[in-house]
């Protein structure tokens, strides 16, 4: 009994060896295929149009929606304020963001993508696999669509204000708006596939950071503090 066992360990049959090797190769191939399916290298989509759900598409769609509300608030402030500083700031924000929205929508059109999320789900692109976004938000009546965005009630309140109250509330809402949008811009500045999308996102991040300082300053001059 002992001798055949010993022989066996010394020289395993060819069939068994082939089986083990085949299995190992198969396992490696399967794992490789799985990794290939799941992993998207950053920058791997530079030549072709980015896919739906990609960082490029998601950022352009969602940042357009985010920007459009910023423009809305700036236009309200510009229509209603008498303060030259606030009016100038509002014009700057509205015109810059509108121009940026135009760029993003132009790209989306070239890529044959919607201008905005067609199903009310936002920020689902802010993760790595692009499948379940941990940062994803779904539209709910009465709630802001994305971080930093104002609710319908807050916009209505802004429309009803004038004078110092208007300026303070506008600055508070806009500070929160800029701050809330920053993580999106930051994510896209690093993860977008198209270099021009990364450039725009990076630019937003920088210009809005300096705009935030200006707004905090204007707010402090009016003896008010940012929203909690």
């Amino acid at each position: 009994m002992t001798s055949p066992e010993a022989t066996e360990t010394e020289r395993p049959s060819g069939v068994a060896r082939t089986l083990v090797i085949t299995a190992a190769v198969l396992a490696v191939l399967l794992l490789g295929a799985a990794i290939g399916l799941l992993v998207k290298l950053p920058g791997s989509t530079t030549s072709a149009a980015p896919a739906s759900g990609s960082v490029d598409v998601g950022f352009c769609q969602d940042m357009s929606v985010h920007h459009l509300q910023g423009i809305q608030m700036a236009n309200i402030a510009r229509d209603r304020t008498t303060d030259p500083d606030v009016r100038q700031l509002a014009f700057d924000i509205a015109s810059t963001q509108l121009e940026q929205v135009g760029r993003m929508k132009g790209w989306l059109m070239m890529w044959n993508e919607h201008e905005q999320s067609p199903n009310g789900v936002y920020m689902s692109w802010m993760n790595d696999a692009g499948i379940h976004g941990h940062g994803a938000t779904t539209a709910e009546p009465g709630k802001p669509l994305m971080p930093g965005m104002a609710t319908t009630d807050e916009l209505t309140k802004l429309r009803g204000l004038s004078g110092r109250d208007l300026e303070v509330y506008f600055l508070q809402l806009m500070i929160r708006h800029h701050t809330g949008g920053a993580p999106m811009a930051e994510f896209a500045a690093h993860r977008a596939g198209q270099p021009f999308v990364r450039t725009l996102a990076d630019n937003m991040l920088k210009s809005q950071t300096s705009e935030l300082d200006v707004m905090k300053d204007l707010l402090a001059k009016r003896g008010a503090a940012p929203l909690p």
């Binding site: 190992a24 396992a27 490696v28 399967l30 794992l31 799985a34 990794i35 399916l37 799941l38």
Partner: peptide
Amino acid sequence: AVIAVLGLAGGVFGYAYSQIHAN
């Protein structure tokens, strides 16, 4: 061991495939 490794690899692949497919 062989079955376990194959099973695991198959499972990972199956998961990846089903996710991508659903997507």
